[in-house]
């Protein structure tokens, strides 16, 4: 429900939830944007046997959380701080993806306006 309502206004530019950005990442920004990089190492992720869908850009917090859980078993509530860090990082990532979506939508609208004026 959340996703479909969120992307509802983007239908008229033929933009759907799972699409990739099509414009150049640098247009419109005054500073230089760097591509994102993973902070956790590949072999750490493999040895901790984290499932593939969780090996995203927040995986270093996830590794810390798993280590804390293993150390504090069975009093897992002591890991609340690490869990909060991980969830905050995921939240920032989600907000970043929302912003990318919105940027894509506005650039497409601008494209339509330019093409319409020409």
């Amino acid at each position: 429900m959340g996703q479909s309502m969120g992307s509802f206004g983007a239908r008229n530019v033929d933009l759907y939830m799972n699409d990739n950005p099509t414009f150049d990442p640098q247009t419109g920004f005054s500073f230089e944007r760097k591509p994102r990089e993973m902070k956790a190492r590949e072999e750490d992720l493999i040895s901790a046997r984290i499932p593939p869908q969780f090996r995203d850009y927040c995986a270093h917090y996830l590794l810390d959380y798993q280590v804390c859980r293993y150390k504090n078993m069975p009093m897992l509530y002591k890991c609340a701080h690490e869990k909060h860090d991980y969830l905050n990082c995921e939240h920032q990532d989600y907000v970043l993806r929302m912003k990318e979506f919105e940027r894509e939508r506005r650039l497409r609208l601008r494209e339509q306006r330019i093409v319409g004026a020409a």
């Binding site: 959340g2 969780f54 996830l62 859980r69 509530y77 869990k83 991980y86 969830l87 989600y94």
Partner: peptide, 20 residues
């Protein structure tokens, strides 16, 4: 709460507007 801490090794992130 016991199960919530034990089962979810990979927590779910929820981000919703206030009214929802």
């Amino acid at each position: 709460s016991m199960l919530m801490w034990s089962i979810f090794s990979y927590p779910y992130m929820i981000y919703l507007p206030l009214n929802i």
